[in-house]
Design a protein around this nucleic acid. Structure first.
Lengths: 212, 212
DNA sequence: CGCTATCTTGATCAATCGATCAGTCCCTGT
DNA sequence: ACAGGGACTGATCGATTGATCAAGATAGCG
């Protein structure tokens, strides 16, 4: 296992548009874990999608479990930077503005790539060492931050009263489901329509806020 | 493959509380498909949960794919009977009463067993022969019925305007997600709380209806 | 009793699984 | 020029996958 990423890798990633093997493996693994789950994903299929040998994937990450954790760390790092940017852009604003900024940032993230929502809705449905790891490493902090924001909104009479955790998961459900199930929606509605993030935001506002 | 179910099976299922092997296989398969997905499910694990040999599962259903389709037929048969009962109980009522009856029936179904929501949110995220089969055999009719009901509500000014398909999937998202992710919610909130169907119904009402 | 149809099991198949290891390629520093 | 080391591949391991098949178990019917 390499301890430090060599400089050559970053240089190569900048020179041509093709990211280096490690990043390609991470991207392919994210897609596989998101669509067929951890147990359904095959390391050989991931390696083939990344265009590398199967053994390289274990060379870089050590095991399938460790690869999965690396994917989750990358996903939640992207989420954290998005949410931090939204918080920074709306700092100084009132509760409603800060809430809307956070909501919009999460919707935009799911609209660009719903894989984080897909993986979470797979891993969250049964207790497992992976779920425990996820909760302690990433979910607990996000849940605490979000429910804190929700309770702030409830205290100022902005947000509908009720269990903040249920509001939090209902928000995530609306924000992510339509993007996660895009293939099914396209097939059922018999049109390759793309889900409109603005429409999603309006639905979430109706769900959370007391007054339109 | 047996063409007709022998009488002895039903009699045995009524005599003692233990359902016959075929039903136990279906139940175990439903749980496996719902938690780890089709690719992640192992026929030997399903057979072990049902307390039978692995070969018996292929004797009754022919293949893993056919077993999956049998599970889906059973799930959607249960859904259809629930929705039909709700429609019958609310027939003659106004649009709002019929909508609330349908919403409440679906929430109750997810609260009792979220496996149908879990399986759908796995299969709907990527095009596959299974998804095509699902859409043509079950989903298209349900989608048409639900969006028809929604458009009826929109025409009478009851339901929020907007794409009926998006409203439909947002409704399903709220109705099912909290139950599907019960293990994660329990872990994150550090309390073995059960999700309250009444609270879910209130959130859906806020999402769909224009006036409380 | 014996015959037949259905249900059920255990052995076994080729294919694929995650993982290990020896060895090759190529860049870097001296 | 030449070692040294990280990146990468191909072969291979035992275990597990879905599937097939022959044989046994059980009940109903004559």
């Amino acid at each position: 296992m390499p301890l430090a990423k060599p400089v050559r890798v970053a240089a190569q990633a900048l020179n041509d548009g093709v990211p280096d093997a490690r990043e390609r493996i991470l991207a392919a693994a994210r897609r596989s874990f998101a669509t067929v789950g951890f147990d359904g994903a095959a390391t050989r299929q991931i390696a083939a999608e990344a265009g590398v040998a199967q053994s390289l994937l274990l060379y870089h990450f050590g095991s399938k479990d460790a690869l999965w954790r690396a994917v989750m760390d990358q996903l939640f790092e992207g989420l954290a930077s998005r949410m931090a940017e939204a918080a920074r852009a709306s700092q100084g604003g009132n509760v409603r503005q800060r809430l809307l900024a956070a909501i919009g940032a999460f919707i935009a993230l799911c609209a660009e790539n719903a894989d984080i929502h897909r993986i979470m809705t797979i891993e969250g449905r049964q207790a497992s060492p992976r779920l425990t790891w996820l909760v302690e490493r990433h979910l607990r902090a996000n849940h605490a931050y979000a429910t804190g924001l929700i309770q702030e909104g409830q205290a100022s009479g902005l947000i509908r009263p009720g269990d903040p955790t249920l509001l939090y998961y209902s928000f995530i459900a609306i924000a992510g489901t339509a993007f996660s199930l895009a293939p099914e929606i396209a097939l059922v509605s018999q049109s390759p329509k793309v889900v409109d993030p603005v429409a999603i935001e309006a639905l979430i506002a109706a769900l959370l806020f007391l007054e339109g």
